[in-house]
Amino acid sequence: MKPADVFIAVLVAVIWGLAFVASRIALDELSPALMTALRFGIAAAPCLVVAKPKVSWSLLVAISFTLFLGQFLAQAYGIAHGVPVGLTSVIVQSQALFTIAFAVVAFREWPTPMQMVGVTIAAIGLLMICATVGYDFSVGAFAVLMVSPISFAIGNLLLRRAQGVPMFDLFAWLCLTAAVPLFALALASDGPAPTWHALTHMSLTGLACMLALGAISTSIAYWLWGRLLRDYPAAQVVPFALLVPFVGAAASSVVFSEKFGPLRLAGMVTVVGGIAVMLLSKRPRTVPVIVE
């Protein structure tokens, strides 16, 4: 990769890591549904000037509801209900484990031996983290948070079907498709008056966090990441995502004084190590489907 593109890849990872901190701050003023809706509402602004990409509405909705709505709403709920920000950033990246598992079912892409080693290591790390659940946050919050990497993984696979369309246009319309039902959910769950009050009484800090989440972390960062995936093999780009949980955990420890017990810290490191083995191994071999 060119040095400038390496810098961009690192920058995107740092932006995504810091986004977990911004989400936690914004959730002090907004409900999970409203915060997520506002995030995608801001990121959908380019839809005013870019046309809908040439993909079917059914595919657009399917990608949006998994890659964006499901992933980020579950994240917001988990953080709002006490799951530490640093831990959340690690759990979300376990999507690599689920992506490999779902690819076996959907595309018969069997993992290589090294990828199986990585899956095993990451799974052990998740079990170690599960053993710490219930002390400082509820089992229910953790269960909802686990929807995030699962939705992320499904969205990754669905995204393969949107080939040959402008990446920026696609992500803008994915954001719009997620924002509309999320605003409806916020109105239904929070009520019109509380929703309006939260939006009109947002502090400058909350507004800055939402602009950073919508315009920078979602719109710009995803566009840059898409360009990198377009210009380079995924094996060169995707490993940079390993920086995200480290940035998220480090930033959370500084901003919120977040600390991790020995078992949870060991589990987090184990998950990231397993993901590293998965991402740095060779591509899985695709087994053709035999039609009798």
Rank of each mutant, 00 (worst) to 15 (best):
L145C: 06
A103F: 02
L265K: 00
V117L: 12
V139W: 12
P84I: 04
L18W: 06
A241W: 03
G273D: 04
A208D: 07
G206M: 03
P84A: 06
P245S: 13
C175E: 12
L176E: 15
L73I: 08
V237A: 03
G155I: 00
L207K: 08
F72D: 01
L279T: 10
L187F: 15
P149V: 02
V104R: 01
A96Q: 07
F20D: 11
L67C: 01
F240D: 07
I42Y: 11
L60Y: 06
A212N: 04
S252F: 12
L229T: 14
V165P: 15
A62S: 15
I79Q: 07
Q75G: 08
T205H: 05
S58N: 11
A184Q: 06
F40R: 07
Y222W: 14
L145P: 11
L187I: 14
F246R: 02
A123H: 05
M1R: 04
N156C: 00
T66N: 01
P284D: 04
P32H: 03
F183Q: 12
V49G: 02
M202C: 13
A193W: 10
V277Q: 01
F98S: 02
I154G: 00
L279Y: 05
G206K: 02
P46S: 04
L73M: 07
A186T: 10
T286A: 12
M268Q: 11
S189H: 09
A44K: 02
A80F: 02
T286E: 13
S64T: 06
C209M: 15
I8Y: 07
G134A: 06
S89W: 11
V287P: 05
A186S: 15
L242G: 12
S257H: 15
P53G: 06
A4H: 10
A172E: 05
D28F: 02
M210N: 11
G248W: 13
A4Q: 14
I42K: 07
Q75C: 11
R264T: 14
L158C: 03
V6M: 13
A235D: 10
A234I: 09
R108Y: 11
V85P: 13
P192E: 00
V90Y: 13
A106I: 15
W196Q: 12
K259I: 08
G41M: 02
L185R: 04
T200P: 10
S31D: 08
I150W: 03
A212T: 11
V21L: 05
L48D: 08
L127R: 03
M1N: 07
L60H: 04
F65N: 13
F137P: 09
P84D: 10
Q163F: 00
H81E: 01
S31K: 02
R227W: 13
I91Q: 10
V237E: 05
Q75F: 14
S94H: 06
G118A: 04
L170D: 13
S148I: 00
V6N: 09
P192V: 02
Y135H: 13
P84V: 04
S253A: 15
Y77L: 00
V237Q: 01
H201I: 06
V12N: 07
I154E: 00
L170K: 07
F7A: 15
L38W: 09
V117W: 01
V6E: 09
Y222G: 00
V14A: 14
V90R: 12
F72W: 02
F65V: 12
A76I: 00
V10P: 08
S151D: 03
V61S: 11
